[in-house]
Design a protein around this nucleic acid. Sequence first.
DNA 1: ATCCCTATTTATAAGCT
DNA 2: TAGCTTATAAATAGGGA
Lengths: 172, 172
Amino acid sequence: MVRKKVKLAFIENDSSRRVTYRKRVKNLVKKTRELSVLCGVDACAIIYGQEEQAPVVWPSSEEEVKRIISDYYSKSEIDPSQRGFNQYTFLNDSVIKAKERLLKLQRKNREKQISNMVSDILNVKSSLDQVNPSDLGDLLWVIEDKIRTIQYRIRGRYGELADMRNNGSLIA
Amino acid sequence: MVRKKVKLAFIENDSSRRVTYRKRVKNLVKKTRELSVLCGVDACAIIYGQEEQAPVVWPSSEEEVKRIISDYYSKSEIDPSQRGFNQYTFLNDSVIKAKERLLKLQRKNREKQISNMVSDILNVKSSLDQVNPSDLGDLLWVIEDKIRTIQYRIRGRYGELADMRNNGSLIA
DNA sequence: ATCCCTATTTATAAGCT
DNA sequence: TAGCTTATAAATAGGGA
């Protein structure tokens, strides 16, 4: 996009791809944070880098997470009648069709798997809405520890853990 | 950041905040997509706008979601021993402390709530890893319908649904 | 690989309609 | 409120050290 307008396609060259990745991730996170602060909304960026790379997650610092969670909590205190509203299922033709489809999925024993995945993608906000303020400390601690654990696991401990990777039963 | 260098703080003026929000969301999504394509990584942007606004989620189109899911699936086919690896709990001092803390949480009957929230924030990738390719069609359909349902619900149907918002038991 | 540099492209705050 | 325009700030590809 500069000394030569680059076309939007996978960068084959490993070296320049990695450089571009670092530059752009940095700015994407910055932009995410700016949007959040300027407009008073909660925004989340998740980037899964190549193999052997820790995922980048924003917000990730204790301070930021705390701010977002307490913002959510104070909102729901101000207007508790709003809480859980997103969970209500509006009934119309497309939802009726959805239900038929889900019934079929249930028969195939996949419904739970799929709804969990949809939740992962769409429901971060509603899960944050449901946190009790007395849980904030524990929540932050668990999140931070999970991030550290993932980073530690991904960075250079493969040797020690190699035997475990061959055991499919570890999936859970 | 332009005709006047704006300081990074909440924009009090409603009108300009909304304009800034729309402009920046558009570009944040664009940047997210560019990073994803240029560097061959999976990235996700989630923005929760103000009240009465539909959340913005990228990726959201059938095509993009399909691409990401099938990429994940083909990765796990090439190296199935990697699947589920992220779920393994590495044992070290901090995890032992985590477990003690979790035990305490369990006593308070909050553990499930919190671990679900952590999963929402950090585990989008691993849930995508576990999708069977034959489920892709159903998955895409459910996601799209969920997005449509949320948008429809949030945009201007409050009148009809107002009575329901006063019922706290709808949280679920 | 990592800074630094810088020519250009992008993003964007204000104005104007 | 929603576009469109424009002056300026930011982001960034490609090089060089």
